[in-house]
Amino acid sequence: MKNIRNKKIIILLTLILTLTTVVGCENSNKIEDNKESKTKIENSAYPLEIEDQFNNKVKIEKEPKRIVSLAPSHTEILYSLGLGDKIVGVTSFCDYPEEAKEKDKIGDFEGVNIEKIIELEPDLVVQYGKGNEEVNNKIKEAGIPIVSYEPESIDEVIDTINEIGKITGKEDEAKKVTEDMKSKKEEVLNKVKNVEKVKVFYEIWHDPLSAAGPGSFMDELINLSGGENIAKDAKGGYSEFNEEELIERNPDVYLAAEDPEKTVESIKSRAGYDAMNAVKNNRVYLLEPNIVSRPGPRIVEALELVAKTLHPDLFK
């Protein structure tokens, strides 16, 4: 009887092990099937046909694996989406994040090295603005898709990030980045919503004097931060501004980006500037240029920086 019972136990254990193995194999097969199915779904987004900000219709055959960025702000967008390892070329001005400095350089704002770009064998080039027609054509002739974006507001930056996320297969990451940006924007707006507006001038350049006018993202940042841009009726977003008109309009706050060629004292000492409230009340400020001059993910940091500068008491 004891031997029979032992045999039954052995048979039962054998059956259990056999069933476990079968079920395990089935589950393993299901997992592999699911992985394969997921891969097919992800790849089904390509080829992708998009229209960039300048109405160029571009076909992206497959998920980009080698990307060239022709602007610091676009480089920051690509890094924010987790695409740093796929960036193979940047401009000499692309210095954020720190890793961007290690990438191959393909030129600067004055021109790009087309041969270098083609040599890097990118499957996507992202440029700021319309770009140079001759350069664009040569890149296209090499079979390289090129997309163009020039956001001039926080909402346009958000749209650009989402669009680049779509092109690169990083839509979820883009959504996370842009939701965080929207949240930061609302936080700043809530702090300044009841403030008394102050008159502001933002200097783009000093010789000749140029201002951030209507349509520029700095104009928007000033307005959102509880300021009134005294150059709101300038001829364009970045245009010359008459110094006599500046002094007559008498800004309460004078802003400019940090630059080796200027200091707060050098601005204050310009002829006639001592008549302005901004100079009388020591409200001339130089701001960190990489934050306030790049329409990328850090544009909401620029918004907070401008708001803090105009209304420091609200951010203590």
Rank of each mutant, 00 (worst) to 15 (best):
Ala231His: 10
Ala100Pro: 00
Ala212Ser: 12
Gly131Ile: 04
Gly236Trp: 07
Lys40Gly: 05
Val68Asn: 00
Leu246Cys: 03
Glu63Cys: 12
Thr20Val: 12
Asp180Cys: 00
Ser148Lys: 11
Ala142Cys: 07
Glu243Ser: 15
Lys140Asn: 14
Val135Ser: 10
Tyr254Arg: 03
Ile31Asp: 08
Val306Asn: 04
Glu163Met: 09
Val292Met: 03
Ile230Glu: 00
Pro97Gly: 04
Lys170Cys: 08
Ile4Leu: 15
Ala45Asp: 13
Asp180Leu: 06
Ile222Gln: 06
Tyr285Gly: 00
Ile230His: 00
Pro297Val: 00
Leu120Asn: 06
Pro122Trp: 03
Asn27Glu: 11
Pro295Phe: 02
Ile146Tyr: 00
Gly129Gln: 08
Ile4Asp: 14
Ser28Gln: 10
Asp123His: 02
Val58Ala: 11
Asn34Lys: 12
Met276His: 09
Asn277Asp: 15
Met276Gly: 10
Leu12Cys: 13
Gly107Pro: 01
Thr39Asp: 11
Ile41Ser: 08
Asn137Met: 09
Asn43Glu: 15
Leu305Asn: 08
Gln53Lys: 13
Asn113Trp: 07
Leu286Gln: 10
Lys105Gln: 14
Leu81Val: 15
Cys25Asp: 02
Glu261Pro: 01
Ser269Lys: 14
Asn132Cys: 00
Pro122Cys: 11
Phe93Leu: 11
Glu49Tyr: 02
Val157Thr: 08
Leu17Asn: 12
Asp155Val: 04
Ile139Gly: 08
Asn27Ser: 09
Glu173Val: 07
Ser92His: 02
Tyr46Val: 09
Pro297Gly: 00
Ser80Leu: 05
Glu110Asn: 14
Lys182Trp: 01
Gln127Asp: 14
Gly165Asn: 03
Val58Tyr: 06
Lys262Ala: 04
Val22Asn: 05
Asp259Ile: 05
Phe109Lys: 12
Asp172Cys: 04
Phe315Asp: 06
Glu288Ser: 14
Glu288Arg: 13
His74Arg: 04
Lys35Ile: 13
Leu189Ala: 10
Pro260Thr: 10
Phe315Glu: 07
Lys62Ile: 08
Thr20Met: 12
Ile247His: 04
Asp180Val: 03
Ala100Ser: 15
Ala278Phe: 12
Glu258Gly: 10
Asn136Val: 02
Val90Asp: 05
Glu61Trp: 01
Phe201Asp: 05
Asp207Lys: 15
Glu61His: 05
Ser37Cys: 05
Glu150Phe: 10
Asp95Thr: 10
Lys40Ser: 13
Leu303Met: 08
Pro208Ile: 09
Thr75Pro: 09
Ala100Gln: 02
Glu152Asn: 11
Val253Asn: 05
Val135Lys: 01
Val90Gly: 03
Pro214Ile: 07
Glu301Asn: 15
Leu255Ala: 02
